[in-house]
Amino acid sequence: MTRAQMLILGVITLGLILVPVLAANNFTIKLFSRLLIFALAASSLNLVLGYGGMVSFGHAAYFGVGGYVVGILTVSGIASPFITWTLAVLLCALLAALIGAISLRTRGVYFIMITLAFAQMLFFVFVSLRQYGGADGLPIRPPDPLRDGRTLYYIILVTLGICLFLLWRIKESRFGRAVQAIKENESRMMALGYPVFRYQLVCFIIGGALAGLAGVLNANLNAFISPNALAWSQSGQFMMMVILGGVGRFWGGALGAVVFILLETWLGSLTIHWQLGVGAALLIIVLFAPGGLVGLVSSANAWLIKRRAAA
């Protein structure tokens, strides 16, 4: 990172730490909590999709299952976050291992569709679990300290910070570079003797586990979980966030999530026809900013540097 980037990151972090202090009401704190949770979820998908080149259309499955593990355990009397969160993340990792091992047999569009198929199966399983709310969803009573919006906000912020640091280290590691190389040229990496399948699977599992963690936070924030958390439209929304922000660019997931949710909230407060605006924004981004928002920022940056050099 350059010094300027460090500075920007520092200012943003400071701002995020100060949010609960400066926030006028609980609505603002909750909105920021949501932004951070979806930043985590979208970043986890960006690892799988952007760095690993695996277009998973079923990423919401882990997001929802993570939430449901917390919900079901809490309803059954096991509320300790240490147990529920650990179990949720482990189960999501296991689920991702299973789904990934089967799905990675296919490529391209077929991979997109088979990951979607697994997510849809899980969606309908949770719809049919009537003792846990079925299609209506399951209200959760989070343990005491987590019911305070400010405490939960800081927990989410710290979790996101740790996860982003982890993701950064993964991206820079030998493993991370190998995964990116597999995305560029799979047969070449195979010829070089890399265990392509195993690397991709591990990448897929890490992505699933982190999405599960985001799902856990989301369930605690809303004190509620429903099958909608693992609907295909939710998977689609995660994908939108990553593409909007910038596929395979480190801040792409986080930036995409923040812009997407803010755009949705802002347009939603202006008009009931806000979807028209979101749709138009997506279309314009695709047609005129192929690298997503991060791509737009870095090409603007490059243009500035070039202009300064010329002057």
């Binding site: 277009v55 593409i243 997506l282 695709v286």
Partner: peptide, 25 residues
């Protein structure tokens, strides 16, 4: 027509945008 040469992800995003627009209209 602008999207044929683009990757599948861009196509998904753009046509999803069209879904939202058409639904709203």
């Amino acid at each position: 027509r602008q999207l044929y040469k683009r990757d599948h992800l861009s196509q998904v995003l753009a046509t999803f945008g069209i879904i939202l627009i058409v639904n709203e209209i």
